[in-house]
Design a protein around this nucleic acid. Structure first.
Lengths: 365, 365
DNA sequence: ATTAGCACTCGAAGGCTAAGAGTGCCAACA
DNA sequence: TGTTGGCACTCTTAGCCTTCGAGTGCTAAT
């Protein structure tokens, strides 16, 4: 079902204006800003039809119109000008990204923070880790009561743990255990680590102190923490600057929902990771979660490398500046993919300050 | 300046009631709940005097009284019944603590979250790390382009980093570097790591690829991230359930302040870490930060071991349930000190589920 | 010193009105 | 047929007034 060109222009102008002001928009306002050379009466007729079609609604009879979710959807799909970032904005993002590439989990938090700062909405950062296995064990002998476990995972992250023992061990035992673990515990998933396997390793090493159990339990912990979905939310406080959240109850409800990343994860698993499109917009009732039914979510996905997929998104009122938000997230995601993704230069200690400049994203004027 | 016993009882009853209801308390209400056998008129006289003394104030002439900061201060110092936790509450906290002892930084977040959940106020977790040095380097050779740096710090934390090289190295070089770093980079603070030291190490190792620089820069990063003060804030959203923050502007201001941990740190450095008392209460204007002038902060400090001090606190309206909050934080801090502090069993992979049961904290009825 | 009584104050809540914004519709017009 | 000016109508918002009630401070009696 398509609508006339003029209706589209009117709808577009109305949404733009509403995004700016957060106030219902009247026919006169549209007449003056839309640039169509027609009077407010004409606009009124059009508005009446757009309302009948379900794109607009009136809070009450004598107020202006505001977009319905269907109206926003139309706006996002067809009307919205794909906004491009200015060169300064793009450079700013690049600069900040280059500062921030550290640990993976730290990173997610940082990236979320960055998204939130850029858009002035609360941001969520999700990562879906593919199940990993251990690639390699090292045990570093420190002294008779202390050693360090270092494991390298199939996704190239490295984890360690300092172990303090109430009893003493010798370096040989540590060495033997390292060899055994490298032989028996690499390449397997955490559910393959059975009590049987552990006890047989203990016996093989001549370990009577439960060392193998300690190492095995750290291994399982590590493997388990590496798979599944993780979520960070930042900048919840920015919600409060939005007029639609002046009602403390509304704000409270949404913030409660957001503050527990677990909910997001549960919802995310229902399909958020499936779709491959670059930036997705979920408007109001399109969201699965009850608490988000009158908010909107904009999400961009990126490749974190090692079969891991990241999502970076923001949450805001349905009256959201979709165009600006989508542009920023898209650029951010592209930057992250290039830096982390499969095709990227391997993460290294060297400084690699590649500057990303996709012409489709940056406005080079 | 001391006040009569009866005035104290009245003040105490009033504060209790106000904490419960968040509404100004009138003379009649006090007469009926205080248990003093006197009429509301008598109470009124006393209230007038308490008001003159600066402990109470009236929002307007014909409303009941609410406590001033001075009133709360008096309440906290002298009147408040030191609340004890029930056995269930104590056990609940212990159980949760035992689940949560993981990485130090992770831990702080978790502990903050726990405090926030327990008290239903936003929580802040601060740690003041004593400057650390590197105790030991290990470099694990993986393949020609990859090795892992593992450093053990003087405070017994272990950090690692996977390094991917664009060029290839042999195992000998790695070994040589490890030896050199153990000789030259252990026991020194990060400002001792000079370009000169790095270049001389490079020369000594015959390293022409800047490997030493990579390792050194990781070392500096690690050392720097280990000292200073760190802060996490959680549960900001809980503010919104407090009636005094129904005003979105007020809530927004405070949440903005809280959400940037940096501010807290700056303020914290002005003395928060000095005082040795177990639980401190900062009421309204007693706070340094402008943004906290009409909120209260309750803080408990604990020993994180290795010369590191932790603070765990909550932020809420001046009308805060000081007694309950203080009891919970105190118990939490004690539990953390026992688990982490100087006297604690060394952190180990073994499960050490000691149960803490200070009679001064738990109510054993 | 305590208490009952009473006049007084002041905010909260409800009802009313006026102002203003925006609509829908109609009749006139191109 | 599409567009436009005009106009009556609707509905919200803000302001004002009144009423109601809670709680006070004061006074006089005990």
């Amino acid at each position: 079902m398509s609508i006339s060109e003029r209706k589209k222009k009117i709808l577009g102008a109305l949404v733009d204006e509403y995004i700016k002001t957060a106030e219902p928009v009247g026919s006169k306002a549209i007449a003056s800003i839309s640039g169509l050379g027609c009077s407010s009466a004409t606009i009124r007729n059009e508005l009446a039809e757009l309302t009948a079609l379900g794109y607009l609604e009136q809070p009450h009879t004598s107020a202006g119109r505001i977009p319905t979710p269907a109206g926003y959807r139309m706006y996002v799909n067809e009307l919205m000008e794909k906004q491009k970032l200015s060169l300064e904005e793009a450079e700013d993002i690049n600069r900040r990204l280059n500062e921030k590439l550290t640990q993976l989990d730290e990173q997610m938090r940082d990236v979320g923070k960055l998204a939130s700062q850029l858009t002035d909405y609360p941001a969520l950062a999700l990562a879906a880790y593919a199940p990993a296995t251990i690639k390699r064990f090292d045990l570093i002998y420190i002294d008779a009561n202390t050693f360090i476990i270092v494991v390298m995972l199939s996704n190239n992250t490295v984890k360690n743990k300092l172990v303090n023992l109430p009893v003493s061990v010798d370096q040989q035992m540590i060495q033997k255990l390292a060899t055994l673990f490298n032989a028996n515990f690499t390449g397997i998933s955490s559910d393959k680590i059975t009590p049987l396997l552990i006890s047989s390793t203990e016996r093989a090493a001549g370990d009577t102190m439960g060392l193998a159990a300690v190492i095995a339990s750290f291994t399982m912990e590590t493997l388990e923490s590496q798979q599944g979905v993780e979520a960070y939310i930042t900048g919840e406080n920015r919600l409060l600057s939005q007029p639609e959240f002046r009602d403390p109850d509304k704000a409270h409800k949404l913030m409660n929902y957001l503050s527990d990343g677990g909910h997001i994860i549960a919802d995310a698993e229902n399909g958020l990771f499936d779709d491959e499109s670059e930036v997705r917009v979920l408007i109001g009732p399109e969201n699965i979660a009850e608490e988000l039914k009158d908010s909107s979510v904009v999400i961009a996905s990126y490749d974190m490398g090692d079969n891991t997929k990241g999502l970076i998104g923001v949450v805001g009122p349905t009256r959201m500046d979709y165009s600006a938000v989508a542009a920023k997230l898209s650029f951010l995601a592209a930057g992250l993919s290039k830096r982390l993704g499969a095709g990227a230069a391997p993460p290294s200690g060297m400084h690699n300050k590649l500057i990303i400049k996709g012409d489709d994203i940056i406005d080079e004027q």
